[in-house]
């Protein structure tokens, strides 16, 4: 464990809690992509199959269970809880059909198995790495469409992006400080793609913080 990874994980947890707070406080899901949340749930479930096979630490297991449970709760609130359910606008959340996200990631994961050798858990793990890289795209598109970004929604995405950026620093740290550290180039590639998706958002978020006004995206 290093400081980049720990703070990264905590930013990830904070982002999820911020989104839950936004839903609870405003009773409103406008500006939030249900597709992104469902893709994240698929990412967590596929990646954390090792909860049943490998024990790393209490910290590791607790965080995994929290990510899965809290994301499932967000989805439940958006799909089934009144009045939040009525405020979710599916017509704005249309950018990416889930199957067009899942199918290429599954194909890439299968291709990766040709290189690495076949293993069912590795197949799901690689799939989750590819899927996580693009899971935020529907959310970023919804933000573009609404343009005015609520404070808590903005903070949610800021913390998610911070988590990804800190993970890049974590890999650099690990490759220097851990003897025999095994490089996962698939993870690096997907992680850099994912972080790059947040760059545009970070830019406008920083400008709005600097000016102290409302946060809105350019059309």
């Amino acid at each position: 464990m290093n400081i980049f990874r720990l703070v990264g994980d905590l930013c990830h947890l904070a982002s999820i809690l911020l989104l839950l707070l936004k839903l609870r406080a405003s009773k409103n899901a406008s500006g939030i992509s249900l597709k992104t949340q469902e893709l994240f749930l698929a990412v967590f479930v596929c990646r954390y199959l090792d909860l049943f096979t490998t024990f790393y630490s209490v910290y590791n297991s607790v965080m995994k269970v929290l990510y899965i449970a809290l994301t499932a709760l967000i989805i439940h609130m958006m799909r089934a809880q009144s009045p939040i359910r009525g405020t979710y606008d599916a017509s704005q959340d249309t950018f990416l059909h889930v199957k067009y996200a899942v199918a290429p990631c599954a194909a890439l994961a299968a291709l990766t198995m040709l290189v690495q050798g076949f293993d069912v858990r590795d197949l799901f793990w690689n799939f989750s790495i590819y899927l996580e890289a693009i899971a935020i795209v529907p959310q970023l598109i919804v933000l573009q469409r609404y343009r005015e970004v609520e404070n808590l929604t903005g903070h949610y995405i800021f913390f998610l992006g911070a988590y990804r950026a800190l993970y890049i620093l974590n890999w650099i740290y690990r490759s220097f400080h851990e003897r025999g550290y095994k490089h996962h180039y698939v993870v690096y590639f997907a992680g850099i793609v994912q972080t790059a998706l947040y760059v545009d958002f970070f830019y406008y978020y920083a400008i709005s913080k600097y000016r102290g006004g409302k946060f809105s995206l350019p059309s």
Binding site: M63, Y67, W125, R174, H177, E178, R179, Y181, K182, H184
Partner: peptide
């Protein structure tokens, strides 16, 4: 450190 693989990451 005992860790040596990105698979222990979240």
């Amino acid at each position: 450190e005992e860790d040596e693989d990105a698979k222990d990451e979240l």
